[in-house]
Amino acid sequence: MTLFEGRDLDCVRGERQVFAGLSFAVPSGGALVLHGPNGSGKSSLLRLMAGLLKPSRGHLAWDGRAVADDPDAHRARLQYLGHLDAVKSVLSVAENLDFWASAQGDGAAGVAAALERTGLAGLAEVPARMLSAGQRRRLALARLFVNRADLWLLDEPTVGLDEDSIGRLQAGLADHRRAGGRVVVATHTALDLPKAERLDLSAYQPPEDAGLEPW
């Protein structure tokens, strides 16, 4: 059973220290839910896990091996969903998804199924500019189901989603975990994630005088 873990992570954005001394571990099939007030570093932690940000201290490990040693392998096993939907308005729903299917792997076969899962099958040929905010979010979520990735990093996945879509997302998450996938999610909506671990980022706020050691 492989473990995705981070040890003693410090994160700095701009010149501000966001959190310090943070550790976590997500086993295969596990779920980690990030909590904390605005600005406590939930998005930063997800970006750090994805490798978009580098920790200023500490390190990430996958199955005991440092992620920084083989960033390509790490990128190949993750799917990241940020605040932005990465949807091109002039392309149709299917074209948007087709592109990410081939850009992120070889998942062209999964496009129809992914549209089905997110309830977008009926809108496949519609230009994305006609979509509502919630539908765009669902299109972004559909990427998760196109290419098989072990680690899902989801930043506020439920923004703009209706109840039905949240239900579909939960079903998708459950399937993903049953198949051995793991998920880290930052959310303010209560998502039904059985046996999920909680990580409260307010416990890792840096001391006020961080960065002010005596000279």
């Binding site: 994805a50 490798g51 932005l84």
Partner: peptide
């Protein structure tokens, strides 16, 4: 950059320089 596609491209398994 503005619509978030760039983040995903940098995370794609393909080398970014090729993209």
């Amino acid at each position: 950059f503005e619509d978030g596609s760039l983040e995903l491209l940098t995370l794609a398994p393909t080398p970014l320089s090729l993209l």
